[in-house]
């Protein structure tokens, strides 16, 4: 489903964030990207989602060469993804509901269908009661869960999650891991960047370790 082939990324300014990284993620597989802070985990997820372009190497998603994709094709590629951001990227000028519904607006769902999907997604992360609240009034962990709800609301084929359990206590982390695992079982491909491989042990994912931008295990 996702192929990373000798991918390198050098940011402007000369830092090598990734060096010659290669691996593949099969359809319906969950892969964990671990490594110390600054190892290049977020960078790799951004390359897969075509938010950045690799300096060298090739990334394919579902057979499509993402690294060479033109700007016109990128929006349609991104609709296959659910993105969980390390910094959540919630909009603070609207309610939780209005945040989670955004991916459905983009693809033109009817208001009714969208509403029922948003409520289902919020229910899965245990935040249905907060749908009218502003994200500013939520705790860090709750914001994280809203971000996860937004990532799964359109039932994407691929989930790219950056530190999805970063701000969560053990109970909530377990719930999120279980949720991602259910997702995987119904066919989603999942790539997770995390410091905390331990939290995911229940889902028994394959673990890839980066160190200073290079593949080590």
């Amino acid at each position: 489903m996702i192929t990373i082939d000798h991918v390198s990324k050098r940011y402007p300014g000369g830092r090598d964030a990734l060096r010659q990284v290669s691996f593949t993620v099969a359809k319906g597989e969950m892969v964990l990207l671990t490594g110390h802070s600054g190892a290049g985990k977020t960078t790799l997820l951004r390359l897969v989602a075509a938010i950045e372009r690799p300096t060298a190497g090739t990334i394919t998603v579902g057979g499509q060469n993402v690294s060479r994709m033109g700007n016109r094709g990128i929006p349609y590629l991104r609709r296959n993804f659910g993105l969980v951001f390390q910094d959540h990227k919630l909009l603070h000028d609207r309610s939780v509901f209005e945040n989670v519904v955004l991916p459905l607006r983009v693809t033109g769902f009817t208001a009714r269908e969208a509403a029922s999907r948003v409520r289902a997604a919020l229910d899965k992360v245990g935040l249905l009661a907060r749908e009218r609240d502003n994200p500013v009034t939520l705790s860090g962990g709750e914001r994280q869960r809203v971000c996860i709800a937004r990532a799964i609301v359109h039932r994407p084929a691929i989930l790219l999650a950056d530190e999805p359990t970063g701000n969560l206590d053990a109970d909530n982390a377990r719930n999120i891991v279980a949720l991602l695992d259910v997702f995987r079982q119904v066919g989603a491909t999942i790539l997770v960047a995390t410091h905390d491989a331990e939290a995911f042990s229940a889902a028994a994912p394959r673990v890839i370790t980066l160190s200073a931008g290079a593949f080590v295990a």
């Binding site: 989602a49 938010i51 929006p75 349609y76 590629l77 991104r78 609709r79 993804f81 993105l83 990227k89 909009l91 000028d93 955004l102 991916p103 983009v106 693809t107 937004r150």
Partner: peptide, 12 residues
Amino acid sequence: DEIELSKLIGAT
């Protein structure tokens, strides 16, 4: 923020 996010979730 909204525009940036819209692009990230596949808005044309």
